[in-house]
Amino acid sequence: MSTLLLPQRRKQSISLTALIDVVFILLMFFMLTSSFTKFSALEMQSSLAASTASDSKPQLLRLALDGQLSSEQTTALTDSALTSDFDISMPTVLQPTPDTQVQVIVDALSRLKTLGFTQVTLGKSRPQANLAAGQQ
C-alpha cells in the first residue's frame, strides 16, 4: 500500500497560490515599512570643542531674518565678499536674529559650507535691540 502511495505523492506539484500569498505578504511589509526620504546632517561643533581647537578669536557673521549675511562693517555680503574678507579655515560664529527660522539658518550654514568654511558654529542669538542701537 505504502509503495503504491509514494510515487503518487512525488508527482503532485506544489501549488503556486501558497507561494504568492507569502510573496504578497513580504511585498506589503516592504512597501509599508520602507521609506525613500534621505536625510542629511549639518555638523556643528559645540563652543566647548571649538575653543579647545583654536585659541584665536572667532570671526563673527550676522544672519538677518531674510537670510542675508552681514559682518560688523558691511551688510548683505556676497559670496565673493565672504571668501575675500573672511578666512575660511578660521572658526566662524554665525549669529542669527532671535526670530530667524531654522530653514533660513540651514540655508546660511550650507551656503557657508559650500564656500569652504570649515568650522562654523551657531552663536548666541543677537538681540534685536542691540542691532537697532548699532545702526543708529
Binding site: 534621505k38 536625510f39 546632517a41 561643533q45 559645540s46 566647548l48 540651514v106
Partner: peptide, 14 residues
C-alpha cells in the same frame, strides 16, 4: 552644550 555634547548634528531633508 552645557550637558557636554561635543558634536551636534542638525538633521535636514535632502
Amino acid at each position: 552644550r552645557a550637558a557636554g555634547f561635543s558634536t551636534i548634528n542638525l538633521f535636514t531633508l535632502t
